[in-house]
């Protein structure tokens, strides 16, 4: 049963992260997930200080708010101070993360929190935190429920906003000219990334979230020229990595999150080598350079 819950958790995280990752890599913002997963630390600490509990709802809200603030700051420095996008991401998240560390050290006496437990949730512990009703019925791990809701919301968001997200990602100037607000879709996408990141890293750890946000989308990008196919393939790659990674971890008796992240990397390597359209091996055979 534990295997089932762990794989299900991995697959839910994989689904929402991979879908959003497709948009992030095409917008050249792949590292935003990394930034958010660090920058939310002060939000979590403040939520903890205000409520005094380690309940996940206030922490999710605190972290979610910080996540959105992070994306605002990134856009602000990039747009108005005209700093390069990657520099803007780097400055913003290290600064917010540092504030979080200071808060933890200053309030060390009152805060029963450490960076490790905040940043590196452990997927192996997912089955331990069960949701038990008053009647004593076990409904499975809490995390699975939270992640299922988040995944549904993300899928709904992408289905309903499909054409707007597609257009504002491909050609924002044209979108704005014909009356489709680029900032509405940018900030809603970033909110979705924040919520996903925060909800996931609490349960599976930051490294796995960052891996899921980038690797399956990059793998899918190499395998297809059609955007809808890319979305589906990225989800498949993510779920496959969760299943294979779990059994890899059992086999080598190692970290589950580490094994899953490793499999996402292997998938990317395989796509890089063997993709029918962009794989380097196949390409060599056809003697056909790819133009840019």
């Amino acid at each position: 049963m534990n295997a089932f819950w762990i794989i299900l958790t991995g697959s839910l995280v994989a689904t929402c992260c991979s879908l959003l990752g497709c948009y992030l890599i095409l917008r050249r913002m792949a590292m935003v997930g990394d930034a958010i997963s660090h920058a939310v630390l002060p939000g979590i600490v403040i939520a903890f200080l205000l409520t005094g509990s380690r309940d996940s709802v206030p922490m999710l809200i605190g972290a979610g708010l910080l996540g959105v603030l992070t994306t605002f700051l990134i856009e602000f420095f990039h747009r108005y101070a005209r700093v390069q996008a990657d520099a803007s991401i780097g400055v913003t998240f290290t600064w917010l993360f540092a504030i979080g560390i200071i808060l933890i050290s200053v309030y060390a006496g009152q805060v029963d929190l450490d960076q490790d437990c905040v940043l590196y949730g452990e997927i192996a512990y997912v089955p331990l935190d069960l949701w038990i009703t008053e009647e004593g019925l076990s409904l499975g791990p809490r995390t699975v429920w939270t992640l299922a809701v988040v995944t549904l919301l993300i899928i709904l968001y992408i289905v309903l906003g499909y054409k707007e997200l597609f257009l504002t990602t491909f050609d924002p100037a044209y979108a704005a000219a014909i009356g489709i607000s680029t900032s509405v879709w940018y900030y809603s996408l970033m909110t979705a990334v924040s919520i996903t990141t925060v909800a996931s890293f609490e349960s599976v750890g930051a490294i796995l979230v960052v891996a899921f946000l980038v690797a399956p989308a990059a793998t899918a990008y190499l395998l297809t020229d059609n955007f809808k196919t890319m979305l589906l393939l990225s989800v498949l790659a993510g779920i496959l990595a969760s299943v294979a990674g779990y059994y890899l971890a059992v086999w080598i008796d190692g970290s589950i999150a580490g094994a899953i992240a490793t499999v996402t990397g292997i998938e990317f390597m395989l796509a890089f080598l063997f993709s029918p359209s962009r794989g380097i091996l196949i390409r060599k055979k056809q003697l056909q350079p790819v133009q840019h």
């Binding site: 597609f166 491909f170 009356g179 020229d225």
Partner: peptide, 26 residues
């Protein structure tokens, strides 16, 4: 609006038809 061609990334996973269909989005 017909933007300058260099303003977008042509390595985007989209077909010619996908792009022309964007004309109906507004």
């Amino acid at each position: 609006y017909v933007p300058q061609r260099e303003s977008v990334d042509w390595d985007f996973p989209a077909s010619v038809f996908d792009v022309v269909l964007m004309g109906s989005y507004g």
